[in-house]
Structures are given as C-alpha cells and as structure tokens.
Write a protein that binds this DNA or RNA. Structure first.
Lengths: 244, 244
DNA sequence: TTCGATGTGTGATTCGAGTCACCAAGAAGG
DNA sequence: CCTTCTTGGTGACTCGAATCACACATCGAA
C-alpha cells in the first residue's frame, strides 16, 4: 500500500491495479521470481508494501527477530557487521532488484547482520506468514531461493579464500573485477569509495588508496572524477591471484 | 547397493531390506531428512549407494561438473580451496551425518571446492536426477536444504567477520569454542592439529602453537595427549572478541 | 624396539599493513 | 560563490604475524 505524505489514500480499483501491475512488472525482473507466471508474481505483488528509508537509516539490526523479506526497489543498501569497538565489516552492497532477510525467514533465527541504506531507498516488504503461504502456492520460488543461497555461499567461500590467500592489493583487484562492467573500458557498475572497499576487504582506507595508486601507475585502471574504469582486465586478474 | 571386495553380491529380498533399513535408520538421524516420515526416508535410502574412500583420497575437485550429493556415513572429510602455490584453505571439516555437494546439485554450476578424506570414510552417494525426483515427492527436504544453506551462510559470514576483526589468537579461540563439547571440562568433539586450525583461520602453524601455549598458561584450556579441553569458557569467549 | 612420519615448541629476523598526522581536492549546500 | 563535508594522497613510525631454522615429542608400523 502506498501513501503520499501522511494522508492515507483510498484507491479506486483501477488506480489500485495499476500499482499492483507496476510492482508485478518489477518483481518479474528479480531472479527470485523470474520463473513464475504472471498470476503467481501478482500473488506476491499483492502481499507487498513499500517502505521508504532515508540515507543512513537502519533497516534491520543484528539480533532482531526477523520476520520479513525485503526487495530493493530503488536506492542502495549495505549489509554489515558492527564490532563492539565500532569497526564495520561490509558483507555486501545491494542495489535495485537485490533482496535480503531470507535467512531469518527460513530458519526463524535472529537477523545475522545490520542493513543500512546508503542512499534514499524504497523497499518492498513481504511478511513471513504471507510469504510462506505464497511459496506453497508457487514452489518454484523455493527453488529460486535455493539457487540464490547457493550463489551467496559460493561468493562467501570465495571471500574467505581471498581474505586468507591474497594481500591487500590482490583483494582490491578482486573487488574491482567483481564490480566491473561487461568489457574493458567500461566503468564499474557501482561507485565505491576507498573507505567502502576497505571495509569490504578488511583493510585500512590508506592501504586501499595506495593500492589504487599503484594500479593507476601500472595502467591497470583509470580514474576520472572518482569513477573507476578497468583498462587492463588481464593485468588486474593477474594481480588478484596468489603470487607464487 | 553394497559390494564386498570386487564381487557384486545378489541379495535375497530380506538381506536387501535389512541393508536399506540400516541406511534409512542412519538417514533419519541426519537433520536434512529428520522431518520426513519413514516411507519418504526409505525413498531416499533406496537411491543411495555407498562408496569407500581411503585417507587422503580426493572425493571431489574444484571445477568438476558436480552431479551428486554426499552424506558422510563414517570417517571424516575436509572441504578446502587450494591456491596455485599449493597453500590450502580449509572451509569446513565434516563428520558423520554431515553432507556436501548440494550447491552443484541446486545450481548446476561446477564444484566450488575440493573435498578430501582425512580418515578412511564411507559416503552415501545420491545422484542429481534421483535426488531431484525424490525431492518433488517430499518437498520438506527442500525446506531442510534451505535451512542447512542458511546455517552455512550465517557461519560463513561469521568467519568473514572474524577474519577481519580478530587477531590470530582470537580466531583460534573462536575455532576452539565452535568445536567445544557441551559443558566446561568436556574435550573438543574433533581432534584438530595446529596445522589444520592454522589452515582454517588463515594463520601460520607456528602462530597457532604460540596461541595455544598462551591459552594453556592462562588456564583457559588444558591439553593432554593432544586432546584439548576447555577449562575456562568465559575466558576464551572474552579472548574471541575484538579488543577495544 | 627402532625408524620414519607426523605433530609441536621456540627463538631470530623480516615484512606487510595498520596507525597517526596532515594536506589537497572534489562535491554539496546555503 | 564561498564555506563545509566528504573523500583521497602520502610520509613516518610501529607492530602483529609470516618466515626461517632447528630441536623435541608422539605415534604407527615394520
């Protein structure tokens, strides 16, 4: 349900269905729902309500009981751990079409990380009970969920490997490659500050700066107005391997 | 199907069913199948064949096309990444009742890691097509699979966090706690060499040795005939937190 | 029992990367 | 437009942990 300002609006059926239609269109672009037919997607779209978050707003906190799944409709959020001393570890940066919160939905345990908006964001919220009921109608979603969890597990294992096997410049190179556009000469899909990168790979901001400087000097990447472009992909890949 | 030596045996129906019965009994102790009724478990048990592996035998290799799920029936295996320079990262050590290989089964992608027997081991093998068909009969397994993947994802994220936030002794403490028995004074459930621990936490063997020496000195753990017992759990927990 | 093999303990040295301390350069907002 | 905030760059110093180099302890198997 959508509200403008603080006034709740009553929709005429036609206005209503336009809105649901829009959400359905959006959801069918999300991999999790891609295999479903129109009707099934609509089923999910109807259970959805959109919630807006300002930049830096906390969306979920580690330890909270979690009973909702979120799909990013606009904006950007980061998934992170916060240590007692305040240091932050960024586990993931999510953009439009990504989703989070499924772990608590599946196993009923508390949230495993914090999620904070890095940009003003609109999130579609699906509550647990609604979601479960709907999954029983459309078991394909269960499959899609497993595929997504598999992807993340592979990614997490890869991250563990590179934390152990690579030096800081190697880890920076890997992050750049993971966020690279399709071909050489394309800028990164996301704008990552050195600070953000450092929190993703467990390094200091300064060391990331030095690594980036090294890459520019060697002609591996070029940076214009803080937008990073990969010039020599092969060179970066070489740098992202454990050195013998 | 079971074979002794190289001679395939023909079973009488009764012999056969004893064997299947045994496997069913075993499978129903595995969390993945725990929610199923006898008949459903039997369905899976019948699709199973046991394969023996010698110590150090390679069970699956990273990059292989994967089309089977393995359940450890006896022995122990390790899941690991191997860098080009030969260094090994141990992602997990699996014992009786644990399983691996589901990622490739779910998403059809190549194996994401190597699996090697650390002890002579017996593995129950379930081929992809059989497994999928059976899952359609028993959708509860799909749910169990998601719960298991969630558990691993939480664990992997925790590992990433501790690699970034903790020093080596902190990471050692964390591993000890994760493998601890129920109460203080109980020995670890698995025997881990310093070498193995070092490969799990991305440290050198020597540094792990020194950390263990420190823990013994401070009375946090005691070691007798290479069996580690946790004496002061609270102390270890304190050591496994990021220090302010 | 004796011999490999496998696991552990400890010093000395080296090195990658964190920390501290600034300064410069873009963005962003009044 | 000029201030303010956020981001990036670089040197100097310090420190945790890897590496190197051995010696010692345990364990199985011949």
């Amino acid at each position: 349900m959508v509200t403008f300002g603080t006034t709740p609006l009553r929709f005429t059926p036609s206005t209503m269905s336009v809105s649901i239609e829009r959400i359905s269109d959006f959801l069918s672009t999300v991999p999790l729902f891609r295999e479903l037919d129109r009707t099934a997607v609509r089923g999910f779209a109807e259970l959805t309500r959109e919630q807006k978050f300002a930049k830096n707003a906390v969306i979920v906190s580690e330890g909270d009981p979690g009973d909702a799944l979120f799909v990013v409709r606009s904006g950007e959020v980061k998934v992170l751990l916060i240590a007692e001393d305040g240091r932050e570890v960024i586990l993931d940066v999510l953009g439009i079409g990504d989703h989070f919160g499924e772990l608590s939905l599946i196993d009923g345990r508390p949230r495993s990380a914090h999620v904070v908006a890095t940009q003003p964001s609109g999130l579609l919220v699906l509550r647990r009970a609604d979601f479960r009921r709907q999954v029983e109608q459309a078991p394909l979603v269960a499959w899609g969920l497993m595929v997504e969890l598999s992807r993340r597990l592979r990614q997490a294992d890869g991250t563990i490997g590179s934390l152990i096997l690579l030096d800081v410049p190697g880890r920076v190179a890997k992050v750049l490659l993971e966020h690279a556009g399709p071909g050489d000469g394309t800028p990164l899909v996301k704008q990552l500050t050195h600070q953000t990168i450092s929190q993703m790979i467990g390094a200091s901001r300064e060391t990331v700066s030095r690594a980036m400087a090294e890459f520019q000097e060697k002609g591996l990447v070029s940076v214009q107005r803080r937008i990073v472009t990969i010039v020599d992909r092969a060179g970066l890949i070489a740098r992202s391997r454990p050195k013998l």
